[in-house]
Amino acid sequence: MSIKHNIPKGVLQFFYPHSRKRRDIENKIMDYLDSKDYKEIVTPTFIYEDNVYQDLYEPLKSKLFKFVDRNSGKTIILRPDVTLQVALAVLLADIDLPARFSYAHYIYRDEKQHANLKREFKQIGAEVFGQNSIETDIEIITLAIDVLNLVDIKDLVVRISDSQIIDKLLDVYLSPQFFDKKKAILRLINKKNLSFLKQMPLGEFGSIIDALFLGDINALLKIEPIKQNVGNLIEISNKINKDCEIFLDFFYYEYPTYHSGVSFDIFSNNAVLCTGGRYGNLMQLMGKYIPATGFAINLDKLMDFLYTKEI
C-alpha cells in the first residue's frame, strides 16, 4: 500500500501516552505559575503583520507564515512569538502595574528544511511588567529554576549576563572613529571571537576584554562605568538560593539583540531548557517604556529532554 498523505515538514503529532504526558506537564507548570500569581493570558493565533513587524526580533522577520485578510486586505501572520503579543496587550489595555502573566501557546516559524528546527512548537512562558529592581530578576530566574525542578529536572546550569555591560563599555571606551565598526565588534563578542577582536584597534576596551572573558570579578568591579552592573549580577547570583550552578558571563552579547539588560539561559546536560531576560527596550520601541522581564520554555524540547532522561 502506498500512502499518499503526509504531514508537512517541521510539525509533530503526538500519540498516547506521550500526548497525555505532555498535557500533564503543561498543566503542572501552568498550575504552578498560577499559584505564584502569574495569571494566564490567551492571545490570538494570528495578528496583523504591520502591528508588530517593526518591533519583531530581526531573525524572525524572514520566518513568518503570512496570508491576506479578506476583510481588511491587510497581511496577517501566525504569531512567531508570544512575548510581543503580551507586551502589546499591556500597552493597549493600560493594565495596573506591576502585572504578571503566564501563557502556553503554539508558535509558528517558517524554518528552512533540514535545519533540525520545528515550524510549530508550544511555548510556556511567564512575564512581569512594571518592576525594574534586581529583586524582579531574582524572582523570574528563581521561578524558572523552580519550574524545571518541578518536572524533576536537576543538575541545572544557569548563564546570567547583562548586555548593559558591553553597551556601556563601548559607549565610554570606543573612540568615535570606530563607531562604524560597532556592529562588527558586537558580532565578534557574540561569537566570543577574541582572536579577531584583539586585532581591532579597540583602545581601552581592548585591555579589559580578557577580564570580561575570564570573569575576573576583582578587576571588573574597579571599572567605573560597569561597577554597578557587575555588582548587581554578583548579588543576583548570591541571592538565587537554589541547588544549581550559576555562570556569570560578563562577555556576552546577543546579536541581533532581543533582550536588553539582565538575560539568562538554563541548561541541563546538553540542552537549553529555558531562555529569558529583560526587554524594556522593546516596550520603548512599541511606544512606552515599561520595565519587563520574563522567560520561555519550549515544551516540545522539554518533553524530548524528559523522554531521553527516562530511557
Binding site: R159, D249, D265, N269
Partner: peptide, 10 residues
C-alpha cells in the same frame, strides 16, 4: 564551541 557546552563544561 557549542553554546551549551561552553557553560556546562567551562
Amino acid at each position: 564551541s557549542n553554546r551549551v557546552s561552553y557553560y556546562t563544561k567551562n
